[in-house]
């Protein structure tokens, strides 16, 4: 039921790596290192500014993939992958979008499971991809059946 969406993308959305959001996120994962929030530490670092934690892209807006509706309940986050060309800089603008990379089903002890692979992309203003974030979401047979009804 998701196979028809493979290859589809959302429209790019401009996001800013917001200073306050980075600090709050770093606190929420218990990583209070000053490289994320202290301006002096940032300036003296090799980056000459503050950076964001590697799992920070969770907060960005990636836009919606037209027609793709995911159930609000019952999804299982199976796997997660991040790839970086460099760390994200506090204050920079990134253009973010999502793409359905793959969908496949596998038989398991819990019935037939659906695996939806979605990659989020973050590009700089010149169109260079700075990070990708790929989620594998497991959709159980029960949840899929509820969606059809």
């Amino acid at each position: 039921m998701f196979s028809e969406y493979i290859g589809r993308c959302s429209n790019k959305v401009k996001n800013v790596v917001e200073r306050g959001a980075v600090k709050k996120f770093a606190e929420a994962i218990g990583d209070s290192h000053p490289i994320y929030w202290d301006e002096e530490t940032g300036k003296k670092s090799r980056y000459q500014r503050n950076i964001a934690p590697p799992t920070f892209p969770r907060v960005f807006d990636y836009g919606a993939i037209e027609g793709l509706k995911l159930p609000s309940k019952g999804l299982i986050h199976g796997e997660q992958r991040f790839h970086y060309e460099r760390p994200l800089y506090v204050g920079e603008e990134l253009y973010c979008y999502s793409k359905v990379e793959d969908y496949y089903e596998k038989q398991s002890s819990m019935g037939k499971l659906g695996f939806l692979v979605i990659t989020n992309y973050g590009e700089d203003s010149s169109g260079n991809v700075i990070f990708t974030s790929t989620s594998t979401i497991i959709i159980t047979e029960t949840v899929r059946k509820a969606m059809v009804v």
Partner: peptide, 17 residues
Amino acid sequence: AKLFTPYYEEGFIQDYF
């Protein structure tokens, strides 16, 4: 990921799965 934060001057997390 915070196990790696103290090493940001030496390098960065390129891939994290």
